[in-house]
């Protein structure tokens, strides 16, 4: 099942690296990933398309992402 995860993050170098590391550790397959700066607020949005049938894994991934200091909000928009 395709899951669409959306996050708002502070535009700091390193945040994408952390999210990439976590995706790898969680063994989640990424079908798509975009990051875009939001105008004038020092924030960016990240959109991820993840292919998995493991809902528990995705829930845990979202909670782990939410722990990141640079992640302002994250949600499964599927």
């Amino acid at each position: 099942m395709k899951r669409n995860i959306i996050a708002i993050v502070t535009t700091n170098s390193g945040v994408l690296g952390r999210i990439g590391n976590l995706l790898s550790r969680a063994q989640l397959d990424v079908d798509g990933l975009t990051m875009q700066k939001l105008p004038g607020k020092g924030m960016s949005d990240i959109s991820m398309l993840i292919d998995t049938d493991d809902a528990h894994k995705v829930d845990h991934f979202i909670k782990q992402m939410d722990r990141f200091v640079d992640v302002i909000s994250v949600a499964d928009m599927t």
Partner: peptide
């Protein structure tokens, strides 16, 4: 170091 320690820290910055 930022890349290496990203998974081993609560937070890191340069």
């Amino acid at each position: 170091v930022i890349g290496i320690t990203a998974s081993a820290t609560k937070h890191n910055f340069q």
